[in-house]
Amino acid sequence: MTRLHPLHLRFADPTLERAYDDYVYPRMLTQWRAALVIGPLVYLLLFVLDPWFVPAAHQAEVWAIRLGTLLVPASFIALSFTPHYARCAYLLPALNGLTGGLGLIAMMRLLPLETVAHYYPVMVLVTFFTYNFSGTRFIYALGVDLVLLVGYNLWFGAVVDYPSHLLATQDFFIVSANLIGGTAGYLAELQRRRLFVHKQALEAERRLHLERSLHDPLTGLPNRELLHDRIAQWLAAAERTPALHAVYFIDLDDFKPINDAHGHAVGDQALQHIANRLRHAVREADTVARVGGDEFVVLAPNLPDPATAASQAARLQAVIAQSGTELPAGVRLSASVGLCLFPYEGATVADILHRADQSMYQAKADAQAVMRFTTASH
């Protein structure tokens, strides 16, 4: 089960935490920018109250504080259009709220005590803004709003002779705003993270089903559908960059008697054994697929020349025929291998596989010789 810290809501798994950050970043970027515009805009509109409550002697100082505070979100907006913003995407919105709150306290200290209460509701707005609209994480918003609450009380409770009953009333509403806004912010982030985990689980299940649908359940090799797709990719690439690719059609010789004599369990074991040998016999860029009961196909792209392709066919036969201890005594395996080189004029995936299949059947009839089809005339 995915574990979340009960307070700061980080995933216990650092890899999952990074994946979550990568997932939400493009979705949250619009909200972060909107918050960095709308919050300062509301903050700026406070000037309509200045003529009524700010003494004329302090109006210039209040404007200096206000405009200085607005430089912070302006710089954050500019930063949001650079790659550097991703490293501090949650912290900067929190700092924006903190700067706005401290700027408000700085302006309020210039007001006559009898008019301070007219600006105090903005502290409640800052609280809700930081928790529910800034886009920061709950734990950062909690830290910011606690700092503002303490700062507000230090100034108006200790430095300024502010009526205690008014301060207590204002504290009640600020604390209530923290409880309501904080709980809403906490639950919203918790829900986002749970939805992310659910989406990750669904995506993992989807990939598992896709993987199973494109792979043979017995051997784990790519099936015919996935093989077709990979041949098509190399065929399309050959139109842009000339290269030589090979498809080997492999059919086990006299496989039915193994099932008849030893049972299907041994037959399945033999197929798994062959699949494992073929996987280890090819390059990492090659594809080994199972396309039928005892039929395998190897796709080998970017070969240097036809001679190398022919020698690889002989090598595949030798790998299959090697003796080993994986199978019951008396069980011997051999294979016929057909080869088709491509691209050639008019090549299609179906035609390439058909030519390799026909080559394999000719090999069976010609003492395991390997035949090649490389032109449309064959």
Score class of each variant (00 low, 15 high):
S213R: 07
L235N: 08
L218K: 10
E239H: 11
R212G: 08
P217H: 04
Q200G: 02
V266F: 02
L235C: 08
D260S: 08
D260V: 03
D260Q: 08
R207V: 05
V197N: 06
K199T: 14
D216H: 06
H198D: 15
A265I: 13
R224I: 06
A238W: 04
R230G: 05
A246S: 12
G220Q: 13
L208D: 15
A246E: 14
L221A: 10
A204T: 13
L202G: 08
H264A: 06
N259Y: 04
D253V: 00
H228R: 11
A232D: 15
H215A: 10
Y248T: 01
W234N: 11
F249I: 00
D229L: 00
L227K: 01
P222S: 03
L214R: 13
L221F: 07
H198S: 14
H264V: 04
F249Y: 11
I258G: 01
D254C: 03
I258C: 01
I258W: 01
F255N: 04
L221S: 09
A243Q: 15
A237G: 05
D254S: 07
L226G: 09
L195S: 13
H209E: 10
D254L: 04
L227Y: 01
Q233D: 15
R240S: 13
G220W: 14
W234V: 05
A246L: 07
I250H: 01
I258Y: 02
D229M: 03
H209Y: 05
R240G: 11
A261H: 13
A232Y: 02
D268F: 00
I231C: 06
I258N: 02
V197Y: 02
D253P: 13
K199C: 02
R206F: 03
F196T: 12
A243M: 15
A243L: 13
F255M: 03
L210E: 15
F249V: 00
L208N: 12
